[in-house]
Design a protein around this nucleic acid. Structure first.
Length: 549
RNA sequence: GCCCCCGUAGCUCAGCAGGAUAGAGCAACGGUUUCCUAAACCGUAGGUCAUGUGUUCGAAUCACAUCGGGGGCACCA
């Protein structure tokens, strides 16, 4: 849309033989008195032409005032050019949006570029918590939007199903299992996992296996415990995510990476690049050569790799799989970790610019203004399931993407549960449902869009009507901006605004009025288009678009 | 000490790539329902955009510094 105006401006400049560079912008002014579109082209380029900005602008408006679609062009302020478009221009656009149906906003903007979005990637040592829920909503919405825009996006969950924490998991289950068989635990070790879910796992294992495991060797027993726990916890996580409407194209297992020898592969590449050395019985990576603040250990003096090695190996596979861009969605506690990861990628002669990190900030849970404390040590984690059960999938998804990723997120459970105006989710869904009601009424009143002649749209002359169309015209650009900035919250904001504009329009003007069937049809055409855009937006956020509430 | 994020209305936050008088929701106060769902709408009030300097024709937006809040700095993952 702005592109079209931009083209017209460039043509105009050429016609007038004015010099210009591309730095000027076209925007939609906040203030309606400044027109539908506004450009600073004369402000930016006046010097080039040895003119005053206003002078240059004056010359240009002559051209625009002769053009169709432009109701009026005027010079304002220090030298802005403001354009006022004719209503017929907007009516034509409305037809375009209406006819696009569920594809309005969709495009081949992404040119099939392959994007890997890795998110959640929670340790398989417990149920998913609220931070994972935020990541899930974030990553999934970004995924949906990017695919809608013609990218080939993929969702991936990296499972740390090997290494230290998994052994601790096995030991934790072991302790609870032995407890079931009469062992008294005076002090449950502090490093073990304390959550109730460990007891439940042990109980479940006990039902399946009875006391049989007690007769295994310790090694076999722990192995059994480990695999059992991993499988069960994985299932739990998949279930939680599914309830949340989030699926992954791929679950990448660390254990598998180890089995397939990718760790050794990565290590040998690093060694070939002469970026490793031995010191104090450990193998180090000279990451400081690549801008990290110090070198990092790859192989500990006990011979085991640090968690860093599988991570390098994992990212190596991402590059090997040929993605154009890889987005890692991480928690705020990982930012110190990224320089060494990027260092490793550079050491492997790969393009570190293809790897992009998004940090999601913390989630603070509130309930009626009171902060809910989350403490892993005390075993009091508020889980993703609890949040979904408490407030419902739709509200949870909305609230988790409503804030930009770099903001700390305050999530109020009471608010998300409220079915009132305070709650934006219901406000938006209600707008959608309301339009369904109107459609029903239209049907009863025998008003429909059969053989609709778009010439009738010229009856739509109210500011509210033109504003709704303008808002819908913006939609594709909102999505593109969202995808480029990796900021799904823009969709939440946009949808809330569009719903608000509709509610206001509805309250002021009757849509269906039997005395004016033609006007009613035009208005019905408009609001059905609005409903369609609302539905597209809600779908992209993974939120239901109900016909009734 | 070093690094990351944040600081906009009483509260929670938008503000797209710097633009012309800074927005929304909630809370407060006042009003609207014979009519397509009042889960809605209208109105009033509320801000030296943390502070300072700089870049620019123009800064909430960019840069630097200061102050304040949150988080991170393992041969743990």
């Amino acid at each position: 849309m702005k592109d079209k105006i931009r083209k017209d401006i460039v043509n105009c400049l050429k016609k007038l033989k004015l010099d210009f560079n591309d730095n000027f912008t076209v925007e939609i002014p906040n203030n309606q008195q400044h027109g539908d579109f506004s450009t600073n082209v004369a402000l930016v380029n006046a010097k080039l032409n040895k003119m005053k900005p206003r002078e240059m602008a004056e010359e240009m408006i002559q051209v625009f005032n002769k053009k169709r679609h432009y109701k009026k062009a005027e010079v304002a302020g220090p030298g802005f050019l403001n354009f006022f478009m004719s209503n017929s221009f907007y009516h034509k656009y409305l037809v375009k949006i209406h006819n696009a149906k569920q594809d309005w906003g969709s495009s081949n903007y992404g040119k099939k570029r392959k994007i890997l979005i890795e998110f959640v990637s929670a340790n398989p040592t417990g149920p998913l918590n609220v931070v994972s829920a935020r990541a899930a909503a974030y990553g999934d919405t970004l995924f949906r939007v990017m695919n809608f825009l013609g990218f080939e996006a993929f969702r991936e969950f990296y499972v740390n199903d090997a290494g230290n924490q998994v052994d601790i998991l096995a030991e934790s289950v072991e302790l609870r299992y032995r407890e079931l068989h009469g062992d008294k635990l005076d002090d449950f070790p502090p490093e073990a996992y304390h959550g109730e879910y460990i007891k439940e796992l042990a109980a479940k294992l006990n039902v399946a296996e009875g006391s049989k495991l007690l007769h295994y060797s310790e090694k076999d027993r722990l192995e059994k415990m480990k695999n059992f726990a991993l499988e069960e916890l994985h299932k739990m996580q998949v279930d939680s995510l599914q309830k949340f409407g989030v699926e992954f194209e791929n679950w990448m297992s660390e254990k598998k990476l180890r089995q397939e020898g990718i760790l050794e592969e990565a290590l040998s590449y690093l060694a070939e690049a002469k970026c490793t050395y031995e010191n104090d019985d450990a193998v180090w990576f000279s990451s400081s050569k690549f801008g990290d603040e110090k070198d990092r250990v790859l192989i500990k003096c006990d011979g085991n790799p640090t968690y860093f090695v599988p991570d390098i190996a994992y990212h190596l596979t991402k590059f090997q799989r040929g993605f154009d861009t890889m987005i890692d969605v991480l928690g705020p506690d990982h930012h110190g970790y990224v320089p060494r990861l990027k260092a490793a990628i550079q050491a492997l002669s790969l393009d570190a610019n293809k790897l992009e990190i998004v940090y999601l900030q913390h989630v603070n849970l509130f309930s009626g203004g009171q902060q809910v404390k989350m403490s892993k040590r005390a075993g009091r984690i508020v889980t993703m399931d609890e949040v979904i059960d408490e407030v419902g999938k739709d509200a949870a998804r909305y609230f988790f993407i409503d804030r930009k990723p770099s903001s700390h997120l305050n999530f109020d459970l009471q608010l998300a549960k409220k079915q009132t105006a305070e709650n934006p989710v219901y406000y938006i869904q209600y707008a959608h449902a309301r339009i369904s009601s109107i459609r029903k009424k239209a049907k009863k009143s025998k008003i429909n869009l059969k053989n609709f002649d778009t010439k009738l749209l010229k009856k739509l002359n109210l500011n509210e009507e033109i504003d709704l169309i303008k808002k819908m015209i913006e939609f594709p650009n909102i999505l593109i901006g969202l995808a480029n900035a990796r900021e799904p919250h823009r969709l939440a904001t946009y949808t809330h605004e569009l719903a608000g504009m509709f509610h206001k329009y509805y309250a002021k003007h009757p849509i269906i009025n039997s005395d004016e069937p033609q006007l009613s049809r035009a208005r019905l055409y408009l609001i059905l288009t609005v409903q369609n855009v609302l539905r597209i937006a809600l779908n992209l956020m993974g939120i239901n678009a109900p016909d009734k509430m």
